[in-house]
Amino acid sequence: MILYALAPLVLAAAPVPAQTGPSFACATAATPTEKAICADPKLGALDREMAQLFGIAKESALGSGPSSQLAAQRAALQEMRACKPPLAPCLLDRYAMRNQELAIAALPKAPAIALAVLRRGDPAFAPILEAVQLWSEAPVDANWSAPERAQRRTRIAALLKPYLTGLQTKPDQSFGNSVLREPGTDGVTVKTIDDLFSSDRHFAAFLNVLGPYLDEPKITGAPRALPCAAIVRHPKLLDATGPIFGSTMDNFVLRNDCSDTLPPLPSLGALQTKLFRGWPDCEGTIRYMAYSSFNRDVDAARLGLVDPGKATPLPARKGVTKADLDGVERDLSAYYATYLHRAPVAAARMARSALFRLMTDAHQCE
């Protein structure tokens, strides 16, 4: 990983050579950072691991087109370049964090490789990710009683039962258990491990309450995100990343990595930033539900999980111009046509519908 030039291996995802050092030639190491990586076997192994994971994650979670990992990789390398002496501890932290992010992105394509990284850095979350991966391999709302799926069902149940038991028996998790047992807006309740296999909605409802109750990861700040590719295969899993508690606890609900693993949509990201900057001051902890709902709207727009509607006028919001909206609508329409293979007219309707939902839910306090 040539930090000053962004080595072709790391950013173009060439095959990782069979070696014990980093992904770049130490004979050409020039900067103090590169030399520190070459001098430390742990750093060398982490750099090689990062290059491998980046190569796997370079394709979009949609299965075609580029992901947005290039920008994320450049940002990660910038953070590494910013490390101050002693370099090794800082670089170890940066590599560990980046490799966790990449492992989640790579999980749907290379489960064995990704899970080894995830178990090492976040053993409290890795079983959930393994269960999500197994779930995503089955058809939507699969008939889990079918003999050919019995092994997968048994493994998922074994992975998740400790979390359900914790919700049901630990006093500090009683609120999560009550949320899970009470019927939500779509009437879903989860009381036994078998309930998980009723539908994607039940599985998502269970995942939705787990985030605030997970043990701390070994890597401070490690991402607690579901792989976007699993949501592409099972769209109802997006609900696992939305608000559920109506309090600050919604800040700790599981997220997803769609912004990094779907094709780039810079105009949508810029609009999201502007809307958050102009968000009015809201009182009460329920405002966190509004923020989380809006973020889920952004994810739904990226995924194309919108119902094409009528050409409705867009609500005005502070700090957002007509030019901003026109640019996002144009880019979303092209995105849906290119990556979701929608006809131009349908893509345009989807874009307007997605934008209307975003602008309607933005700047809400409840």
Rank of each mutant, 00 (worst) to 15 (best):
H341T: 02
K109T: 12
G187M: 13
A222M: 00
Y95I: 07
D195E: 07
P86D: 09
C26A: 07
K318G: 05
V328A: 09
G55E: 11
A146Q: 15
P223T: 11
R317Q: 05
D40A: 06
Y95F: 05
T285H: 10
P66F: 00
G187Q: 14
P147I: 12
E216T: 15
A343I: 15
M97Q: 09
P15G: 01
D141Q: 10
V232Q: 03
S178G: 11
A39M: 04
A25W: 15
I244C: 05
L207R: 05
A138K: 13
Q151S: 08
A316I: 15
A362S: 12
Q100D: 07
L92G: 01
L271Q: 09
K58Q: 12
P162I: 00
Q100T: 06
V132M: 00
R94Y: 09
L332D: 05
K170P: 03
R81H: 15
A204P: 07
L11S: 14
L43F: 04
M350A: 07
L115A: 02
M50P: 02
R224D: 00
T20Y: 15
R352T: 07
R296Y: 12
G278S: 10
P41C: 05
A138R: 13
S23C: 03
P127M: 00
A205H: 10
A61D: 06
K191A: 02
P162H: 01
Y339M: 01
A290D: 11
R342V: 10
F203S: 00
N143E: 10
A158H: 13
D361E: 06
L355A: 11
L238T: 15
V209E: 06
Q19R: 11
F54Q: 10
I193E: 01
F276A: 01
P212D: 00
S145Y: 15
K58V: 01
Y163W: 05
M50R: 09
I56K: 10
K84D: 06
V188C: 04
R81T: 15
Y339I: 10
D297Q: 08
A5T: 14
T338W: 06
V179H: 08
R120A: 03
L214P: 15
A222D: 05
I56L: 05
F197K: 07
K191D: 06
G121R: 13
A5Q: 10
A158P: 14
K236M: 12
K218D: 03
P313F: 07
K236C: 09
T28I: 08
R94A: 00
F252E: 10
